[in-house]
Write a protein that binds this DNA or RNA. Structure first.
Length: 201
DNA sequence: TATGCGATATTCT
DNA sequence: GAATATCGCATAG
């Protein structure tokens, strides 16, 4: 545990292409530095939301809510939905183009006890499996909407702590528009991946 | 394991 | 009013 070195990712390492970014982020690290300590997790599941994609929040143009999706690639877009959940995306294209990668699940690395307190559950498997749970465990809310994930701060993207396994793909979860597109990516066999078993082959 | 439902806030029609 | 990139709990198989 102590020998893990997490290096911040530079923006020029991130693909300027939302699908490529969604694949690239599998196995990388999400880091949250809080006064109470560091939280980190291995990204194991993502979904891409593209320009011209009816399921993308940017589809109908820019609004105050989705503003961050239009920032240069590598910025956080955080929104609240279903009256209960925050979700986090990483903007994926050049400035002015609205698209992003939804982070759907991570494998906890550091700060597991702090995550348990945020989530009010002790089950390791339930801490960060699913986009709403992940945001809750990492205390991600509107305050980090628009944050540059390639800059030093309280929320950033880091290098992989270990080699990643093969990437699986499927249709996206929980949407109705453009629902047939194969834009969900995950690390095969990882138990922290969310969603039904039939989508995890 | 799968399916169903209510809760709940914000945005869109 | 309706829809929503979900969760947690309930119930049935």
């Amino acid at each position: 545990m102590a020998n893990r070195k997490i290096r911040p990712l530079r923006r020029d390492e991130l693909p300027v292409n939302t699908v490529k970014l969604a694949r690239y982020l599998i196995g990388k690290t999400l880091v949250r530095d809080l006064p109470a300590g560091r939280l980190s997790g291995r990204i194991v599941e993502t979904e891409a939301y593209l320009p011209g994609d009816a399921a993308c929040h940017a589809f109908r143009g820019q609004t105050p809510r989705n503003r961050a999706l239009f920032l240069e690639h590598g910025h956080a877009y955080v929104y609240f939905i279903y009256g209960s959940s925050f979700m986090m995306n990483v903007s994926g294209e050049e400035p002015g183009v609205g698209a992003g990668v939804l982070l759907r699940a991570v494998e906890p690395i550091e700060g597991i006890e702090l995550m348990r307190r945020h989530r009010r559950t002790v089950r390791l498997l339930d801490l960060t499996r699913g986009p709403g749970r992940l945001a809750s465990a990492f205390r991600i809310d509107k305050r980090v909407d628009g944050v540059d994930l390639c800059a030093p701060g309280a929320l950033w993207l880091g290098s992989a702590v270990r080699k990643r396994g093969a990437i699986g793909e499927s249709i996206r979860i929980g949407i109705t528009r453009d629902a047939h597109l194969v834009l969900r990516f995950y690390e095969r066999g990882n138990i922290f991946v969310s969603g039904p078993k039939r989508l995890q082959i």
